[in-house]
Design a binder for these strands. Structure first.
Ligand SMILES: [Mn+2]
Ligand SMILES: [Mn+2]
Ligand SMILES: [Mn+2]
Ligand SMILES: [Mn+2]
Lengths: 159, 159
DNA sequence: TACATATATTACCCATAGGTAACTTATTTG
DNA sequence: CAAATAAGTTACCTATGGGTAATATATGTA
């Protein structure tokens, strides 16, 4: 992709795909597999379907793709488990999720899940790094947090 | 959509659609139409195609949809213009774009276009409001900006 | 062990959002 | 004004990522 300015979602989605990255959907699957496997060691197709609010056939399909990318191990009618590579990816995705969530919490939002779920797939590694640094900055500067909350209280209505 | 936690992009994308919102792609079209029409009063199909790095037939299709939603006026082989409703939507989209961009700039990113283009479609109105408030907070508290930059300089490498 | 039930797969369907090729309409120019 | 060119539309293709219905396999229980 030529070094062009795109001004579109699609342009950059395609850009990402060429780099052999996971699609947003696959990222959600991996993140959830990681969440569950961390505790139970494995996850079954139907459980994954339920957790992702999706039907089993959709899971079957995606699981095949993730296996092809060596992120999980799976044999027909068996159990899904993470490979070492899969564990790394899952850990990254969960870390990213938490970074976005922490930032949204800081902003003052109560309900963060929906926005987190949407935003997490659409930030570059650079932005993620900065977001993590910013979260640390806030942690180490509680006075800024206080100032911001005061500012919010004064201004929350006028937009 | 039941008040369920989804943990997926798709769940929330579908949620949005039911509310008769624009798709990310349509938002990009509207934003670009607004950018150009603000200056020229109108835009042609081929120009829009070029600006969005997309082919003319794709534009024809989307323009039909936007017309059906009364966001633009268009007659075959004619010129695209914004309705009053379309101007409102366009103004909102541009404002949102700028809010996301300003925030990413604040974080310390040089290249913001790609992330802005991706993120802008995936933030709720609540998050946008908070983001705008946060941008204002930073503007009115330059000492925080300085502190953050110092923090960045000390920590930018260790992640 | 046989049957009922639970789990998973396969074969299809749908929508979105892009693409190309062929055709039509509009505009420019000799 | 006729021909050439530019602009736009139509018909049809692709891929992703969902869905359902029917089928296959595995598991639990009488
Ligand atoms: Mn997600
Ligand atoms: Mn997530
Ligand atoms: Mn965009
Ligand atoms: Mn934009």
């Amino acid at each position: 992709m030529d070094n062009k300015d795109f001004y579109t979602v699609r342009g950059y989605q395609i850009h990402k795909k060429n780099e052999k990255m996971l699609t947003p959907s696959m990222e959600d699957y991996m993140e959830m597999i990681y969440r569950v496997c961390r505790k139970n060691g494995y996850i079954r197709i139907n459980v994954l379907a339920e957790r992702l609010n999706v039907q089993a056939p959709s899971v079957s399909r995606v699981v095949e793709k993730l296996k092809a990318r060596k992120l999980i191990s799976y044999e027909k009618y068996g159990v899904v488990q993470l490979t070492d590579k899969g564990k790394q990816v899952g850990a990254f995705l969960l870390k990213r999720h938490k970074a976005v969530e922490a930032f949204l919490k800081f902003l003052g939002l109560q309900e963060t899940l929906m926005d987190t779920e949407m935003i997490e797939h659409n930030i570059s590694v650079e932005t993620l790094k900065k977001l993590i640094l910013f979260n640390r900055f806030i942690q180490s500067h509680p006075e800024v947090l206080t100032q911001y909350h005061e500012f919010l209280n004064k201004n929350q209505d006028r937009l």
